[in-house]
Computed example of a mutant assay.
Amino acid sequence: MTSRERFLAAARGLYTDCIPAAPYNGNFGAALAGIPISVYNTDGKQMADAQTLAWEKIGQDVIVAQSDNYYIAEGFGCVIEQPYDTTPNLVKPAVATLDEVEKLKVPDPYRDGRMPVYLEAISLLRERFGNEVAIRGPGTGPFSLASYLMGGTTEFLMQIAYCEADNDSVKESQLFELMDVSSDALIVFLKAQLSAGSDTAMVGDSLASLSMISPKIYEKYVFPYECKVFQSIRADVKKRDAVTILHICGDTRDILPNMAQTGADILEIDAKVTLADARILVGDKIALMGNLEPTTVLFAGTPEHVQNESLKCIRAMEGSQGGFILGSGCEVVPKSPEVNLKMMVETAHNASGNM
Protein backbone atom coordinates (compact mmCIF):
# COMPACT_ATOMS: atom_id res chain seq x y z
CA MET A 1 0.00 0.00 0.00
CA THR A 2 1.12 3.58 -0.50
CA SER A 3 1.25 5.83 2.56
CA ARG A 4 -1.84 7.67 1.36
CA GLU A 5 -3.77 4.43 0.83
CA ARG A 6 -2.67 3.16 4.24
CA PHE A 7 -3.76 6.33 6.06
CA LEU A 8 -7.12 6.62 4.30
CA ALA A 9 -7.88 2.93 4.85
CA ALA A 10 -7.08 3.18 8.57
CA ALA A 11 -9.28 6.27 8.84
CA ARG A 12 -12.16 4.17 7.50
CA GLY A 13 -11.47 1.12 9.65
CA LEU A 14 -10.36 -0.95 6.64
CA TYR A 15 -7.43 -3.34 6.14
CA THR A 16 -3.92 -1.86 6.18
CA ASP A 17 -0.64 -3.64 5.58
CA CYS A 18 0.86 -2.01 8.70
CA ILE A 19 0.02 0.73 11.18
CA PRO A 20 0.23 4.19 9.57
CA ALA A 21 2.33 6.82 11.37
CA ALA A 22 1.28 10.46 11.40
CA PRO A 23 3.14 12.74 13.83
CA TYR A 24 1.74 16.29 13.80
CA ASN A 25 5.05 17.89 12.95
CA GLY A 26 4.43 21.33 11.48
CA ASN A 27 6.98 23.59 13.14
CA PHE A 28 9.23 20.58 13.69
CA GLY A 29 9.69 20.63 9.92
CA ALA A 30 10.65 24.30 9.98
CA ALA A 31 13.27 23.68 12.66
CA LEU A 32 14.62 20.63 10.84
CA ALA A 33 15.03 22.70 7.66
CA GLY A 34 16.58 25.65 9.53
CA ILE A 35 13.82 27.99 8.39
CA PRO A 36 12.67 30.65 10.92
CA ILE A 37 8.99 30.22 11.78
CA SER A 38 8.25 33.80 10.70
CA VAL A 39 9.44 32.83 7.21
CA TYR A 40 7.99 29.32 7.24
CA ASN A 41 4.43 30.44 8.04
CA THR A 42 4.40 33.26 5.49
CA ASP A 43 5.87 31.43 2.49
CA GLY A 44 4.00 28.46 1.04
CA LYS A 45 6.96 27.20 -0.95
CA GLN A 46 9.30 27.20 2.02
CA MET A 47 6.65 25.47 4.11
CA ALA A 48 6.33 22.77 1.44
CA ASP A 49 10.13 22.49 1.15
CA ALA A 50 10.49 22.05 4.92
CA GLN A 51 7.81 19.38 5.07
CA THR A 52 9.34 17.59 2.10
CA LEU A 53 12.66 17.46 3.93
CA ALA A 54 10.97 16.17 7.09
CA TRP A 55 9.38 13.36 5.09
CA GLU A 56 12.70 12.48 3.43
CA LYS A 57 14.28 12.21 6.90
CA ILE A 58 11.45 10.42 8.71
CA GLY A 59 9.25 8.65 6.17
CA GLN A 60 5.89 9.20 7.88
CA ASP A 61 2.62 8.43 6.08
CA VAL A 62 1.12 11.92 6.43
CA ILE A 63 2.79 15.23 5.60
CA VAL A 64 1.51 18.23 7.57
CA ALA A 65 1.23 21.79 6.24
CA GLN A 66 0.82 23.54 9.58
CA SER A 67 2.34 26.19 11.85
CA ASP A 68 0.08 28.44 13.97
CA ASN A 69 -3.57 29.32 14.63
CA TYR A 70 -4.10 32.85 13.31
CA TYR A 71 -4.15 32.44 9.51
CA ILE A 72 -7.99 32.66 9.35
CA ALA A 73 -8.30 35.25 12.13
CA GLU A 74 -6.01 37.65 10.27
CA GLY A 75 -8.43 37.50 7.35
CA PHE A 76 -11.08 38.99 9.65
CA GLY A 77 -8.75 41.84 10.64
CA CYS A 78 -7.07 40.42 13.74
CA VAL A 79 -3.60 41.85 14.30
CA ILE A 80 -0.76 39.57 15.36
CA GLU A 81 2.82 39.98 16.52
CA GLN A 82 5.17 37.65 14.62
CA PRO A 83 8.42 36.90 16.48
CA TYR A 84 11.32 35.85 14.30
CA ASP A 85 11.44 32.17 15.18
CA THR A 86 8.41 31.37 17.34
CA THR A 87 4.70 31.25 16.60
CA PRO A 88 2.67 34.50 16.51
CA ASN A 89 0.76 36.16 19.34
CA LEU A 90 -2.61 37.88 19.09
CA VAL A 91 -2.23 41.65 19.56
CA LYS A 92 -5.67 42.94 18.60
CA PRO A 93 -8.90 41.01 17.98
CA ALA A 94 -11.19 41.77 15.05
CA VAL A 95 -13.88 43.24 17.33
CA ALA A 96 -13.74 44.38 20.95
CA THR A 97 -17.31 43.62 22.07
CA LEU A 98 -20.18 41.31 21.25
CA ASP A 99 -22.15 44.31 19.98
CA GLU A 100 -19.74 44.48 17.05
CA VAL A 101 -20.05 40.83 16.01
CA GLU A 102 -22.58 41.66 13.30
CA LYS A 103 -19.81 43.56 11.48
CA LEU A 104 -17.76 40.40 10.91
CA LYS A 105 -17.67 39.07 7.36
CA VAL A 106 -16.34 35.68 6.29
CA PRO A 107 -12.93 36.22 4.63
CA ASP A 108 -11.86 34.87 1.26
CA PRO A 109 -9.43 31.94 1.78
CA TYR A 110 -7.72 32.66 -1.54
CA ARG A 111 -6.95 36.28 -0.67
CA ASP A 112 -7.26 37.10 3.03
CA GLY A 113 -5.01 36.53 6.01
CA ARG A 114 -2.37 33.85 5.62
CA MET A 115 -4.79 31.23 4.33
CA PRO A 116 -3.28 31.50 0.81
CA VAL A 117 0.11 30.48 2.26
CA TYR A 118 -1.29 27.17 3.48
CA LEU A 119 -3.23 26.58 0.27
CA GLU A 120 -0.04 27.10 -1.74
CA ALA A 121 1.89 24.68 0.50
CA ILE A 122 -0.82 22.01 0.18
CA SER A 123 -0.96 22.42 -3.58
CA LEU A 124 2.83 22.14 -3.94
CA LEU A 125 2.97 19.07 -1.69
CA ARG A 126 0.21 17.36 -3.68
CA GLU A 127 2.04 18.17 -6.91
CA ARG A 128 5.30 16.75 -5.54
CA PHE A 129 3.95 13.59 -3.96
CA GLY A 130 0.95 12.73 -6.11
CA ASN A 131 -0.99 9.94 -4.43
CA GLU A 132 2.00 8.40 -2.65
CA VAL A 133 1.73 10.27 0.66
CA ALA A 134 -1.27 11.75 2.47
CA ILE A 135 -1.35 15.54 2.83
CA ARG A 136 -2.86 17.09 5.97
CA GLY A 137 -3.89 20.73 6.14
CA PRO A 138 -4.67 22.78 9.27
CA GLY A 139 -8.02 23.88 10.66
CA THR A 140 -8.46 26.12 13.70
CA GLY A 141 -11.71 25.04 15.35
CA PRO A 142 -14.74 27.35 15.48
CA PHE A 143 -14.62 27.89 19.25
CA SER A 144 -10.91 28.77 19.23
CA LEU A 145 -11.33 31.02 16.21
CA ALA A 146 -14.27 32.82 17.83
CA SER A 147 -12.07 33.69 20.80
CA TYR A 148 -9.47 35.32 18.55
CA LEU A 149 -12.13 37.37 16.78
CA MET A 150 -13.84 38.80 19.86
CA GLY A 151 -11.71 40.21 22.64
CA GLY A 152 -9.17 37.40 22.89
CA THR A 153 -9.39 34.16 24.88
CA THR A 154 -9.93 35.58 28.38
CA GLU A 155 -12.56 38.12 27.32
CA PHE A 156 -14.39 35.56 25.18
CA LEU A 157 -14.62 33.02 28.00
CA MET A 158 -15.67 35.74 30.45
CA GLN A 159 -18.52 36.77 28.14
CA ILE A 160 -19.73 33.17 28.08
CA ALA A 161 -19.52 33.04 31.87
CA TYR A 162 -21.49 36.28 32.22
CA CYS A 163 -24.08 35.04 29.75
CA GLU A 164 -24.61 31.79 31.63
CA ALA A 165 -24.65 33.44 35.07
CA ASP A 166 -27.15 36.12 34.02
CA ASN A 167 -29.19 33.94 31.66
CA ASP A 168 -28.73 36.78 29.15
CA SER A 169 -30.63 35.92 25.98
CA VAL A 170 -29.24 38.90 24.04
CA LYS A 171 -25.63 38.00 24.84
CA GLU A 172 -26.37 34.35 24.09
CA SER A 173 -27.72 35.25 20.65
CA GLN A 174 -24.60 37.32 19.94
CA LEU A 175 -22.33 34.45 21.01
CA PHE A 176 -24.21 32.08 18.72
CA GLU A 177 -23.83 34.59 15.88
CA LEU A 178 -20.09 34.72 16.56
CA MET A 179 -19.89 30.94 16.52
CA ASP A 180 -21.78 30.85 13.23
CA VAL A 181 -19.43 33.26 11.48
CA SER A 182 -16.32 31.49 12.77
CA SER A 183 -17.77 28.15 11.63
CA ASP A 184 -18.57 29.58 8.20
CA ALA A 185 -15.01 30.87 7.83
CA LEU A 186 -13.56 27.47 8.71
CA ILE A 187 -15.93 25.76 6.28
CA VAL A 188 -14.84 27.83 3.28
CA PHE A 189 -11.16 27.42 4.20
CA LEU A 190 -11.49 23.64 4.54
CA LYS A 191 -13.25 23.42 1.19
CA ALA A 192 -10.43 25.44 -0.38
CA GLN A 193 -7.88 23.06 1.18
CA LEU A 194 -9.68 20.05 -0.25
CA SER A 195 -9.64 21.68 -3.67
CA ALA A 196 -5.90 22.34 -3.27
CA GLY A 197 -5.25 18.66 -2.61
CA SER A 198 -5.53 18.06 1.13
CA ASP A 199 -6.55 14.54 2.13
CA THR A 200 -7.96 15.83 5.40
CA ALA A 201 -10.33 18.46 6.68
CA MET A 202 -9.38 19.19 10.26
CA VAL A 203 -11.09 20.87 13.20
CA GLY A 204 -8.48 21.60 15.87
CA ASP A 205 -10.37 23.24 18.73
CA SER A 206 -7.78 23.66 21.47
CA LEU A 207 -9.84 26.15 23.50
CA ALA A 208 -12.62 23.57 23.81
CA SER A 209 -10.33 21.59 26.14
CA LEU A 210 -11.95 20.63 29.43
CA SER A 211 -9.01 22.38 31.06
CA MET A 212 -10.70 25.58 29.85
CA ILE A 213 -14.46 24.89 29.73
CA SER A 214 -16.99 22.50 31.23
CA PRO A 215 -18.76 19.67 29.38
CA LYS A 216 -21.95 21.73 29.62
CA ILE A 217 -20.34 24.67 27.80
CA TYR A 218 -18.92 22.28 25.21
CA GLU A 219 -22.37 20.83 24.53
CA LYS A 220 -23.95 24.26 24.15
CA TYR A 221 -21.34 26.44 22.44
CA VAL A 222 -18.99 24.02 20.70
CA PHE A 223 -20.60 20.71 19.75
CA PRO A 224 -23.35 22.15 17.49
CA TYR A 225 -20.81 24.16 15.50
CA GLU A 226 -18.31 21.34 15.10
CA CYS A 227 -21.24 19.29 13.81
CA LYS A 228 -22.13 22.14 11.45
CA VAL A 229 -18.61 22.23 10.02
CA PHE A 230 -18.41 18.50 9.34
CA GLN A 231 -21.93 18.39 7.92
CA SER A 232 -21.26 21.35 5.62
CA ILE A 233 -18.10 19.86 4.12
CA ARG A 234 -19.31 16.26 3.86
CA ALA A 235 -20.02 16.37 0.13
CA ASP A 236 -16.65 17.98 -0.65
CA VAL A 237 -14.83 15.43 1.53
CA LYS A 238 -16.53 12.55 -0.27
CA LYS A 239 -15.86 14.06 -3.70
CA ARG A 240 -12.13 14.37 -2.92
CA ASP A 241 -11.88 10.92 -1.28
CA ALA A 242 -10.66 12.69 1.86
CA VAL A 243 -11.34 12.22 5.59
CA THR A 244 -12.09 14.50 8.53
CA ILE A 245 -10.22 14.92 11.83
CA LEU A 246 -11.28 16.39 15.18
CA HIS A 247 -8.67 17.25 17.80
CA ILE A 248 -9.28 18.83 21.20
CA CYS A 249 -6.42 19.14 23.67
CA GLY A 250 -6.31 17.73 27.16
CA ASP A 251 -8.39 15.14 29.00
CA THR A 252 -11.53 14.91 26.86
CA ARG A 253 -13.05 11.76 28.36
CA ASP A 254 -16.21 13.54 29.51
CA ILE A 255 -16.95 14.79 25.98
CA LEU A 256 -15.47 12.02 23.81
CA PRO A 257 -18.90 10.47 23.15
CA ASN A 258 -20.08 13.87 21.86
CA MET A 259 -16.95 14.29 19.78
CA ALA A 260 -17.62 10.92 18.16
CA GLN A 261 -21.05 12.21 17.10
CA THR A 262 -19.80 15.33 15.31
CA GLY A 263 -19.31 13.57 11.99
CA ALA A 264 -15.50 13.35 12.15
CA ASP A 265 -13.86 10.26 10.68
CA ILE A 266 -10.88 10.44 13.04
CA LEU A 267 -10.54 11.57 16.63
CA GLU A 268 -6.99 12.67 17.40
CA ILE A 269 -6.49 11.79 21.07
CA ASP A 270 -4.29 13.85 23.39
CA ALA A 271 -1.72 12.02 25.51
CA LYS A 272 -3.76 12.79 28.64
CA VAL A 273 -6.34 10.17 27.61
CA THR A 274 -5.41 6.51 27.22
CA LEU A 275 -6.30 5.03 23.86
CA ALA A 276 -8.00 2.12 25.60
CA ASP A 277 -10.31 4.51 27.47
CA ALA A 278 -10.99 6.45 24.29
CA ARG A 279 -11.98 3.31 22.39
CA ILE A 280 -14.38 2.28 25.14
CA LEU A 281 -15.97 5.73 25.20
CA VAL A 282 -16.40 6.19 21.43
CA GLY A 283 -16.97 2.62 20.23
CA ASP A 284 -15.60 0.98 17.11
CA LYS A 285 -17.20 3.09 14.38
CA ILE A 286 -14.65 5.90 14.39
CA ALA A 287 -10.87 5.84 13.91
CA LEU A 288 -8.48 6.97 16.61
CA MET A 289 -5.14 8.70 16.09
CA GLY A 290 -2.53 9.21 18.79
CA ASN A 291 -1.14 9.54 21.24
CA LEU A 292 2.56 9.74 22.03
CA GLU A 293 3.34 12.50 24.51
CA PRO A 294 5.15 15.22 22.55
CA THR A 295 7.38 16.56 25.36
CA THR A 296 8.38 13.69 27.65
CA VAL A 297 8.47 11.03 24.92
CA LEU A 298 9.16 12.51 21.48
CA PHE A 299 11.24 15.50 22.61
CA ALA A 300 12.98 14.35 25.80
CA GLY A 301 12.83 10.57 25.42
CA THR A 302 15.31 8.13 23.93
CA PRO A 303 14.60 6.07 20.79
CA GLU A 304 14.06 3.04 23.05
CA HIS A 305 11.52 5.00 25.10
CA VAL A 306 9.73 6.10 21.92
CA GLN A 307 9.64 2.50 20.70
CA ASN A 308 8.20 1.23 23.98
CA GLU A 309 5.56 3.95 24.15
CA SER A 310 4.64 3.39 20.49
CA LEU A 311 4.17 -0.32 21.15
CA LYS A 312 1.96 0.49 24.15
CA CYS A 313 -0.30 2.55 21.87
CA ILE A 314 -0.39 -0.15 19.23
CA ARG A 315 -1.12 -2.93 21.73
CA ALA A 316 -3.91 -0.87 23.31
CA MET A 317 -5.67 -0.98 19.94
CA GLU A 318 -5.17 -4.71 19.30
CA GLY A 319 -8.51 -6.42 18.77
CA SER A 320 -10.26 -3.09 18.21
CA GLN A 321 -12.58 -3.03 15.21
CA GLY A 322 -12.09 0.69 14.60
CA GLY A 323 -9.19 2.11 12.59
CA PHE A 324 -5.98 3.28 14.25
CA ILE A 325 -3.17 5.65 13.24
CA LEU A 326 -0.12 6.11 15.46
CA GLY A 327 0.29 9.83 16.05
CA SER A 328 1.55 12.40 18.49
CA GLY A 329 -0.83 13.49 21.23
CA CYS A 330 -0.47 17.08 20.03
CA GLU A 331 2.04 19.07 17.97
CA VAL A 332 5.58 17.71 17.85
CA VAL A 333 7.97 20.06 19.64
CA PRO A 334 10.42 21.82 17.29
CA LYS A 335 13.95 20.39 17.55
CA SER A 336 12.69 17.04 18.81
CA PRO A 337 15.37 14.46 17.97
CA GLU A 338 15.04 13.23 14.42
CA VAL A 339 15.90 9.68 15.57
CA ASN A 340 12.86 9.68 17.86
CA LEU A 341 10.47 10.49 15.04
CA LYS A 342 12.13 7.86 12.85
CA MET A 343 11.73 5.28 15.60
CA MET A 344 8.04 6.15 15.94
CA VAL A 345 7.51 5.58 12.21
CA GLU A 346 9.59 2.41 12.07
CA THR A 347 7.75 0.91 15.04
CA ALA A 348 4.39 1.57 13.40
CA HIS A 349 5.50 0.19 10.05
CA ASN A 350 6.84 -2.99 11.70
CA ALA A 351 3.50 -3.66 13.38
CA SER A 352 0.60 -5.57 11.89
CA GLY A 353 -2.02 -3.34 10.34
CA ASN A 354 -5.72 -2.85 10.95
CA MET A 355 -7.60 -6.01 9.97
Rank of each mutant, 00 (worst) to 15 (best):
S183D: 06
N167F: 04
N167V: 08
D254A: 15
A208H: 05
D284A: 14
K228P: 01
A54K: 02
G323A: 06
K342H: 11
G263K: 08
A54L: 15
I160P: 01
V229E: 07
P116D: 05
D166P: 04
P215K: 11
G322L: 10
V106G: 05
E81D: 11
S209K: 10
E155S: 13
A242I: 04
D251M: 11
K335R: 11
V333C: 10
I72A: 08
R12Q: 14
I248K: 00
L104G: 04
I266M: 08
H247C: 06
Y118W: 07
Y24S: 06
V345Y: 02
I245L: 03
C330I: 05
S310D: 07
L326M: 12
A10F: 12
G130D: 07
A73K: 09
A73R: 01
A11Q: 09
P107A: 09
P337T: 10
E293S: 01
T52R: 06
P36L: 03
G250I: 00
E318N: 14
P142G: 03
Q174S: 05
S195W: 04
S144M: 13
M289D: 13
Y15F: 15
D251P: 03
T252W: 12
N69S: 09
I37D: 02
I37C: 01
A300Q: 08
R279T: 05
A264K: 00
T295L: 13
G301T: 03
N167E: 13
F299L: 14
V181W: 00
A196G: 08
P142I: 07
Y148E: 05
E177N: 15
E268W: 07
E81I: 12
A201K: 02
L292E: 08
L207E: 01
M344H: 12
I63T: 04
V91H: 09
D49C: 01
G152E: 11
R12A: 08
F156H: 09
E304P: 10
T86E: 14
D241S: 09
S198W: 00
I187P: 05
S183F: 05
L288E: 05
A96R: 14
D277W: 10
V79L: 14
V170D: 14
G323W: 04
E164L: 13
L311A: 11
G151P: 00
I269P: 08
L194M: 00
M158W: 13
T16Y: 08
S173Y: 12
K92C: 08
G113L: 08
L326N: 09
N354H: 15
M289A: 15
P257F: 00
T16A: 13
G327E: 12
R240N: 03
L288Q: 06
A73I: 00
L292V: 06
S352F: 11
D199E: 10
T302S: 15
N27K: 14
V273Y: 03
